[in-house]
């Protein structure tokens, strides 16, 4: 799959507040096509706020966010009619998956293709089936979300987000509901997607997962990126106090 050589995501000095609290105080990150970037930090560090701003689900106050050449302006979230280009470039996998409960797996995946992109149902279904097959959940195509296991739901959510073929895929805490075996299998799926040319930004506090599958790690603390580099540099050799705190946090085991 051909990708432009420019950054898929370019975040420059972004500030964002929730209520009176400034959650992001000048975040700068970029992700290139084919790259898996882990945005790490303890709970409340601002990872989700950052992802929501990139996906144009939440506002940011200043700075710039550019996705695949499309620049998002600071301020309130623009109406959907002005976000058409961005919506095609960014896919998002929510922490709670948020699959459409009233639709089958197949219909969850084809919904955007048929209604946002205007594909025929046959074309959408064959594309969806290919995606579900890649993700190993094709046999669940006729099931409803509540009949799926956590791992299956995660994969369906990824298939749904990938169906319109976005340049950038955002994943919010994708491993939170997975056991270690499924975590590894998810990581392999994500590597495959990167190999196909997608840019992936993953918010996580799962140190093992980041170390095993990310190309690059950015540590978010107190609203800024305090450390950035390869997983090895950041997670094994860091002396930064915030990174050490992250490594000590519950559920995070220091890498050997």
């Amino acid at each position: 799959m051909e990708r432009s050589v420019t950054q898929a995501l370019d975040v420059r000095n972004v500030h964002a507040s929730r209520g009176s609290v400034e959650v992001l105080r000048g975040v700068t990150i970029d992700v290139a096509p084919g790259e898996v970037c882990a945005l790490m930090g303890t709970s409340g560090a601002g990872k989700t706020t950052m992802l929501r701003a990139i996906a144009a689900l939440g506002p940011f106050d200043s700075g710039s966010i550019t996705v695949d050449g499309f620049a998002l302006a600071p301020g309130p979230v623009p109406p959907e009619s002005r976000l058409r280009v961005l919506r095609r470039s960014v896919g998002m996998v929510f922490q709670a998956q948020s699959l459409f409960e009233h639709l089958t797996v197949m219909d969850n995946v084809t919904l955007a293709l048929v209604h946002a992109l205007g594909w025929t149902r046959e074309r959408a279904e064959s594309e969806a089936l290919a995606l579900l097959t890649t993700l190993g959940v094709a046999h669940r195509a006729g099931a409803y979300p509540r009949q799926l296991s956590g791992g299956e739901a995660q994969r369906v959510a990824i298939a749904r987000a990938l169906a319109p073929d976005p340049t950038l895929l955002l994943l919010d805490e994708p491993t939170s509901a997975l056991d270690p075996a499924r975590r590894n299998s998810l990581g392999e799926v994500l590597r495959t997607l990167a190999a196909e040319g997608h840019a992936l930004l993953i918010s996580t506090h799962d140190v093992d997962f980041a170390e095993a599958f990310a190309d690059r790690v950015a540590v978010l603390a107190k609203g800024v990126v305090v450390e950035e580099g390869s997983p090895r540099e950041v997670l094994s050799e860091s002396t930064h106090a915030d990174t050490r705190a992250l490594l000590r946090s519950p559920g995070a085991e220091p890498p050997a």
Binding site: L57, L83, R84, R87, F94, L99, F100, A112, H115, A116
Partner: peptide, 9 residues
């Protein structure tokens, strides 16, 4: 929000 990120109006 899931609908919005998929590009639905």
């Amino acid at each position: 929000e899931a609908g919005r990120t998929l590009g639905l109006s």
